[in-house]
Design a protein around this nucleic acid. Structure first.
Lengths: 213, 213
DNA sequence: TCCCTAAACTAACAGCGTCAGCTTTTGTAC
DNA sequence: GTACAAAAGCTGACGCTGTTAGTTTAGGGA
């Protein structure tokens, strides 16, 4: 039987964030209500407000925790282009591990601490490598665009696997019904192709902008 | 005074979608409730269900209408690389015109008709230009990743304009407080840099894969 | 003219985020 | 050691949400 105030706190910000993330991953954003979250924590919904001001603040903390898991240790050692490539893969993996979170990761500008730490590492490494600040900013932004977009949802799963859909209206897509079956391969392939293209392009630009300085 | 059934239908799917889009653009996703939408339409909320099965279906129709506005006429005339570049700009503009819609544009796989028409046009143009199907798929996907990511929310607006935030914790970002002021320029610059890099890289690849065939 | 369907309505449901106020425990100050 | 404030649970309630059931009335076809 629950007591007015327990001998030891039942909740903590960290535990709330963990359980919220678990519900989000398992059952999606719609299943994540304050009452549901509280139940999973062995508590009633209003108790959450002793630890977070609003439900949005909880979601914000979940978002921050996800971004905080992105490894940044590849920066500062080795070639900038190699580090950038590795980082993009790690970043994508972290987002793809929590696909239900992506819609609200997208939501507001990322003013969260982990997002700033991430930007700091990328920008710092590029400037350190010799890139002028204006290039470092745009390269970091362009990479974020690409990674975020690729985590937003599968490209291949966007296509129904019923061939009859395409026959009349979308003749060029006549083989698109096969994409669903190997969506992992298609999405990964597109990501790697885009990533390699971007990084190789930036290397060419580096030779013109930095080496020729 | 409202009547049980009006002489002439008050609602239509199109009118509902238009007003929903207007509310979404002006006041955001949270403001778009069925009662609010109905009020704006001069009607009570349950009447909407004579035209759409659920609220999600309305949002889906809004998403489809937005994607349908993307001009596709540049395909099939002129160089594929030029068309691809123009299309990416148009696509981004269409998404950026409705930033509050992006979170749920991202949500589900894009099984909507307008999204299929878009994919059909891009893929068709690439194959027509000589790209092998597997490349055309991945190029189309990579472009969508980049454009979607760049519309998801401003990169530059993600940085607080208070310099003191950065001093201790994010030393590399010491000048980031200036990004907010010229966010348009920064975001556009990053988009154009990434776009040019991708397209130029694909042109190089084309020379290897297609011309040398 | 009769009847079915379309398209509006009212009333109501459960579930949502959140707040006010209550209770009990804990930690600190004297 | 006792008073007292803060912390961290609780109950009950608010207005809002998406949605359903059932009602009413107009329009169109037989």
């Amino acid at each position: 039987m629950p007591v007015a105030r327990p001998r030891q706190p039942v909740l903590s910000r960290q535990r709330i964030v963990e359980v919220a993330t678990a519900i989000l991953d398992k059952e999606g954003l719609d299943a994540l209500s304050t009452r549901r979250l509280a139940q999973e924590l062995g508590v009633r919904a209003p108790s959450l407000y002793n630890h977070f001001a609003t439900k949005d603040a909880i979601l914000d903390a979940v978002a921050d925790a996800i971004i905080a898991q992105v490894d940044l240790r590849m920066f500062g050692k080795g070639e900038w282009a190699v580090a950038l490539t590795e980082w993009a893969r790690t970043y994508r993996r972290a987002l793809a591990a929590h696909p239900n979170a992506v819609p609200f990761l997208a939501h507001g500008p990322a003013l969260r601490p982990a997002a700033l730490a991430l930007a700091d590492a990328v920008y710092g490494a590029l400037v350190e490598a010799g890139w002028p600040p204006s290039y470092a900013t745009r390269i970091g932004a362009a990479m974020r665009y690409f990674v975020a977009g690729s985590s937003l949802g599968s490209f291949a799963l966007g296509f129904p696997d019923d061939p009859s859909v395409y026959a009349q209206r979308y003749p060029n897509l006549r083989d698109a019904h096969r994409l669903r079956g190997r969506h992992r391969q298609v999405d990964d392939g597109a990501f790697e192709l885009g990533l390699a293209t971007l990084v190789r392009g930036f290397e060419t630009l580096y030779a013109q902008v930095v080496d020729a300085r």
